[in-house]
């Protein structure tokens, strides 16, 4: 849980670390992480993308082991990692740690957040948390068919503008929206779509003060860190893996250069 070397569900998946973990990454161009609330059809999206047949149950929290698969598109090879379904990334459960650490330390090229269109507000909780960590994300609005049946309409363009990332409506069970999703992933991965993720502001003045004090220090120590405020907040929450990353200087590696843009 606290050691970076215990690699069964070790989060370090950044490209230079991958060979060390024994996952064949020589011929993969992009890593895509799949995050989302439980029971939003995340595994179905995963199966559609990779052609695998992970079990998908109508049970919250079905996927417990992390699944990996791949696909290739427009002459690029993508590796897809299905993260455990979680409601949040702030608590201390193992699942949430796995998901969070992968998004932070593994620095996937794109994080696809699968959300249930019928319960968008609830799902936005996780979406906003993911956007605090990474600035390369795509929102897959799944279960649009159910939303339609329930007369729920979502203004995707407005949502995309609010969140600052591409929003793709989909119905994964009917395999609808998958080509668009793959195209959006490609755009973000290649850097043709530059995300401007929504960042949280509405906090209490006392907390804002603490966060900015700490963020200043962090900026001086680890220049170029993309998610200063979030890291500061995690330190204030006593998150052990972030504390370790600061102590060992591992955090600095995250700031050395934004991911390589496309040839």
């Amino acid at each position: 849980m606290n050691s970076q070397h215990d690699c069964e569900n070790c989060p370090v998946h950044h490209r230079e670390n991958l060979i060390r973990l024994g996952i064949a990454m020589d011929r993969v161009d992009y890593v895509v992480a799949l995050a989302g609330n439980p029971n939003t059809g995340k595994s179905t999206v995963f199966n559609n993308l990779t052609g695998l047949r992970q079990h998908t149950g109508n049970w919250p929290g079905k996927t417990v082991t992390r699944a990996e698969g791949g696909y290739s598109y427009a002459e690029k090879r993508y590796k897809v990692v299905d993260l455990p379904g979680t409601y949040s990334l702030l608590s201390t459960s193992t699942d949430e740690e796995t998901a969070r650490d992968f998004i932070l330390f593994g620095r996937p090229d794109v994080t696809v957040i699968v959300a249930d269109a019928t319960r968008l507000e609830r799902n936005l909780n996780l979406v906003l948390q993911v956007l605090e960590i990474t600035d390369r994300a795509v929102l897959c609005l799944n279960l649009m068919d159910e939303a339609k049946r329930n007369h729920i309409e979502i203004d995707e363009r407005n949502l995309s503008a609010e969140l600052g990332i591409p929003v793709i409506p989909a119905a994964a069970r009917q395999k609808e929206g998958m080509p668009e999703l793959i195209a959006a992933i490609e755009e973000v991965a290649s850097g043709r779509y530059v995300c401007q993720p929504h960042r949280l502001k509405s906090r209490s003045p006392k907390l804002n003060h603490a966060v900015s004090t700490l963020a200043q220090k962090l900026a001086a120590q680890f220049p170029g860190l993309p998610n200063l405020n979030w890291v500061a907040l995690r330190l204030l929450e006593g998150d052990q893996s972030i504390i370790e990353a600061v102590r060992t200087g591992e955090l600095g590696k995250l700031s050395t250069g934004v991911l390589s843009p496309q040839p």
Partner: peptide, 16 residues
């Protein structure tokens, strides 16, 4: 604060 933002965005973009 996260939920506050979430509900603000949802109000703007979701219609039943």
């Amino acid at each position: 604060s996260i939920y506050a933002d979430a509900s603000r965005i949802a109000r703007k973009t979701v219609r039943t």
